[in-house]
Amino acid sequence: MIPFDLLLLFFTASVLLALAPGPDNLFVMAQAAQRGSGAGLLVTLGLCTGLLLHTSAVAFGLAALFQASVLAFSLLKFAGAGYLLYLAWQAFRAGGEQEGDTGSDTLQRGRLYRRGILMNITNPKVSVFFLAFLPQFADPARGSLAVQLLLLGGVFIIAAIVVFGSISLLAGVLGERFRQSARAQKILNRLAGSIFAALALKLATTER
């Protein structure tokens, strides 16, 4: 199995990668600032559920499809960009109210969790990244590659939860004052909408 010192090195690299500005941590930050730390944590759990799917795809060879097929890669990335544009439209439309505040708390929690999953699984760059990154720390001489890749994916997810969870708490606290004012909330919603739109543009124009 993978030596502990190599797992520690992998965990450190994963934390640094999660800290680097990117679509996922910007998405978590925007959601937490707009809707509170709890919302950011739910989105984080959704994103990490998506990482489970990407890890499985790498471990069992499905990610190679997105690296090899232009069509599959393009279809998934445009689906993700379209979803982000939908979120941007919702945020701009919300004005001075928190988007989607009507309805039960359970419904809202489920929606935020699913939002994180959709954001993550519709970004084919994650699978391609995992396909390039995870195998560097695996070795056939240590046993099943699939098991090693699943373990590495699990360690990466722990690192992502630590980093994204911290971002959620910080952004939620900083955004609390804005959420107390309708005018400030309107500005916050427009800022979140702009971030979603920018992420959509970045995803739509990304290359394999």
Rank of each mutant, 00 (worst) to 15 (best):
F66P: 06
L8W: 12
R111K: 14
A57S: 04
P124A: 05
V155D: 11
P140W: 15
T102H: 10
L26H: 10
A192Y: 10
M1Y: 07
S74M: 11
G50F: 00
I161D: 02
I2K: 10
A39Q: 05
Q185V: 00
L52N: 04
D139A: 10
F27G: 10
L149W: 06
S166L: 02
F78M: 14
R109G: 02
Q34M: 07
L8I: 14
F27D: 01
G153N: 00
L188T: 06
L131C: 06
R115M: 15
D5F: 13
F133A: 07
Q67G: 15
S144M: 11
S166H: 06
Q180S: 10
G193I: 15
A18H: 09
F60H: 07
M119H: 11
L169N: 04
V126Y: 02
F129H: 03
A182D: 09
T12E: 09
T106F: 13
Q180E: 11
R208D: 07
A171S: 02
S74H: 07
S56K: 00
R183F: 04
E99V: 06
A88G: 13
L75W: 09
I195K: 09
A160K: 07
F137K: 03
E99G: 11
L107N: 05
P23Y: 10
L45N: 03
L45D: 05
F156L: 14
L134Y: 03
L7H: 06
Q31V: 15
T206H: 03
V43Y: 02
R190K: 12
L107Y: 11
P3S: 01
I2G: 08
F73R: 11
F60G: 05
S181W: 05
R190I: 12
G36W: 12
V126A: 12
L52Y: 05
